[in-house]
Design a binder for these strands. Structure first.
Lengths: 130, 130
DNA sequence: AATTTTATCGCAACAATGTTGCAATTGATA
DNA sequence: TATCAATTGCAACATTGTTGCGATAAAATT
C-alpha cells in the first residue's frame, strides 16, 4: 500500500475532527476550513482517512453522509459496529460507542458489517423540552 | 389530508414494486418504467407512496436510497423498525421483516425511530461461493 | 354527459453532492 | 538538494433530488 502524507489540508481536517464531539459532513468541514483547500481535496482527504481507519463514515436516514473520528482506545481489532444517534431536532450525529444491538439472523445470510442508527431527541434537545 | 389519485404512472410504479422481491432505487424504477412518465414524477409518486404508508424508504450504508413495498399483513400499527440486508455482491436490498434488534440505550436519549441495516452476502451470492 | 375542481404531470431550471483527468505542487526520502 | 510520487487545484461532468408553473387529467358534481 501507498504511504499517506501529512499535508497542511489533512492536518487542518484532523484538527477539526479533534475539536468536534459530533460527526461532521463534508460541507460542515468545508465551512470550518475557510478555503484552506479545494472542495475536491476535502473529499479525497476524507477518503484517505476512512481508508486509513482514522475516521469512519456514517450514512444517515435522511441520506446525509457524515464522518467521525474513530475511537480506537479499547480495541485491538477495530470494527465500526457501534450505534449512531441522529437528533431530529439539532441534526447532530453522535457515536454511541457502547451501544451494540443483539439480533437473530435467518441462516444462509453472511453478515459482515452492521449499521445501527437511532433517531429521536438527544440529551441536549430533550432538556430544552421541545 | 388531500385525496390521492390513481394515475397511470402511479399504477405502473406499484406494479413494479409488486413484481420485485427486493427494494428498488429511483433509477431502477425509472429504467423499468420505460418513459411512462418524467423523472420528477417518479420522485413525486414515491413521496406520496411513502406518505400513504404504502412504500417505505431505506437509506443504505453507501448513501443510496431505495424503496420497498410495506408488508402490513400482520400488524395493526405499522412501524418500519425491521432490519434490512444489503448484499455487497449483487447490491440487492431485502427487508428482514422478522429481524428486530434489542439494545440498551444510555438514559436521557429519546429514541423514536431505528434503522438497522446489515451487509454481507445474501443467500444467492453465498451459494455461488464468491 | 358535460362541467368543475384540483391533484398530478411535464418541462425547464436549479442545487447539492460526489467523481474524474490532468498538469502543477509539495511532502518525504535518499 | 535532488528526486519521486502522493497530493492538490481546477475544470468539467454525473447523479440525485427539488421547485415553480402552466398544462393535463382524475374524480366529484351538476
Amino acid at each position: 500500500m501507498k504511504a499517506t502524507r501529512n499535508t497542511t489540508a489533512k492536518t487542518a481536517v484532523l484538527e477539526i475532527f479533534e475539536k468536534s464531539k459530533t460527526a461532521l459532513s463534508h460541507s460542515e468541514i468545508q465551512k470550518q476550513l475557510n478555503d484552506v483547500c479545494d472542495r475536491v481535496t476535502i473529499y479525497r482527504i476524507l477518503d484517505r482517512l476512512v481508508n486509513d481507519d482514522i475516521v469512519h463514515k456514517i450514512s444517515n436516514l435522511d441520506g446525509t453522509v457524515k464522518y467521525a473520528k474513530c475511537n480506537h482506545s479499547n480495541q485491538r481489532v477495530h470494527i465500526h459496529n457501534h450505534a449512531h444517534f441522529s437528533c431530529e431536532n439539532c441534526h447532530e450525529i453522535t457515536c454511541l460507542e457502547n451501544v451494540k444491538p443483539s439480533y437473530i439472523m435467518p441462516h444462509n445470510y453472511k453478515v459482515k458489517e452492521i449499521n445501527f442508527t437511532l433517531s429521536g431527541l438527544c440529551p441536549n434537545c430533550l432538556n430544552s423540552n421541545i
